[in-house]
Design a protein around this nucleic acid. Structure first.
Lengths: 231, 231
DNA sequence: CCAAAAGTGTTCATCGTACACCCATGT
DNA sequence: ACATGGGTGTACGATGAACACTTTTGG
């Protein structure tokens, strides 16, 4: 054993953090991808990634990377999976801990994003990505689809104020199916988690649709009492 | 940049694989823990862990470690989470990728397990573990509890042939609640996933209870048709 | 013959689903 | 006035929950 630590018999690895960034433009579910700006495969489409720094936890690292590439902090960000096939990276042994982010599509910093050569892609039309990133995207999509039906995470993709038809469009886009609008509205409102505002959104129609707000505090109280969000 | 690869600016880390091993003894849900046999904290209770080797994927690594400590291969083993706080290990920067295993408690190799100083602990009575392992166990338990209600993973903890009362005991132990036995039986049998055998288990009662078998092929077919296991 | 666990059916409330028309307003 | 999307209620079937007695058999 070395003087340094008891683990020197083992081989360390590079730990990458890769973020799958979802956004919703009121029509389609989209993914933010960048043109990789370092070797190897500089210029290829890729997830937003970086490497762990010694003095940050992996969560902090993922947030740092997301902030540096989009200007966003204070975002829904959750671990997806670790990808650790032996030759997934061509340069060195790199294990990737992946995170998926749900962002409000109008909040990110367009300049930073453009400077990084990033662009939104419909989830149905993802280009070829480097390494195993296409597989990672598939995994993230599956996770999002499962999770959005049992946890109120969809709201992370919408502005603070949103209309019921907007919300329905979102779920239809994520799950790639349609809902009956009467049943959808009834279901969501019956959970008692949406606060109706006075104000209307007049962008979508002449009549205008009332804005609602998700009440997170009420959700947390109800959760503790055994309530389960379910779509 | 070095001649070796493009990532040499980054600091590699040790990647540990830790396994949370669940078992069921027809009464309680249990966890297999070992007395750690290397420094630091040699002799403390710990999850079953080891370090990634260069030529194995992380999944292979987890299976190797589980095999070496229990003699078991061909086991339900699934990724849980990565734990990557900066100082979670006291020796070096170690990021742990964790896996939970569901094993048939009579299949493992008692000699190997004993030689490794391992022992079963009720999930309600877990001793103090090294590093953040208690937190990892909590996370695993939550995952198991959520997952066993929507996927037929409970069967991984039972022998091939089991009775309905055994199955009910299992779910009651995992979820720490009781079910009405008529409703439980009706629910499970209505899914059409259990094949009734001729044979009876006479251990549990004078009357004896019929054995059943989980039909995985049928589950997979039904799954593709949109069926969802739900307890 | 009795203790102990296995096995069985019905009722009721709740929830998901299917379905069609009126409303408000900008042009 | 009309086109466009927003908003509403009801009826039916399916599903989950509550509940008590009979069966089998080893001792």
């Amino acid at each position: 054993m070395s003087a340094k630590n008891h683990y020197t018999n083992y081989t360390p690895v590079y730990l990458a953090l890769d973020c799958i960034v979802f956004g919703f433009d009121n029509e389609k579910l989209k993914l933010l991808l960048i043109k990789r700006n370092f070797k190897p495969f500089k210029g290829s489409w890729s997830l937003m990634g970086g490497f762990l720094e010694p003095k940050e936890s992996i969560d902090e690292s993922a947030r740092r990377i997301l902030l540096s590439l989009t200007g966003l902090s204070d975002v829904f960000l959750e671990q997806l999976q670790v990808f650790g096939a032996v030759n997934r990276d061509t340069e060195a042994r790199v294990v990737s801990s992946t995170y998926y982010a749900l962002i409000k599509i109008n909040d990110y910093d367009h300049d930073i994003v453009k400077a990084n050569g990033a662009a939104w892609h419909e989830v149905g039309k993802i280009p070829q990505l480097i390494f195993d990133h296409n597989e990672i995207v598939e995994t993230a999509l599956n996770k999002l689809r499962r999770k959005c039906r049992t946890q109120p995470i969809g709201f992370e993709l919408l502005p603070e104020k949103f209309t019921i038809p907007q919300l329905q469009n979102l779920y239809e886009a994520i799950l790639d199916k349609t809902f009956d609008k009467r049943n959808f509205r009834k279901k969501l409102l019956s959970m008692n988690l949406l606060d109706k505002l006075e104000e209307k959104d007049r962008a979508g129609s002449k009549k205008g649709a009332f804005y609602y707000q998700f009440n997170r505090e009420r959700y947390e109280v109800l959760s503790l009492q055994g309530f389960n969000f379910e779509l």
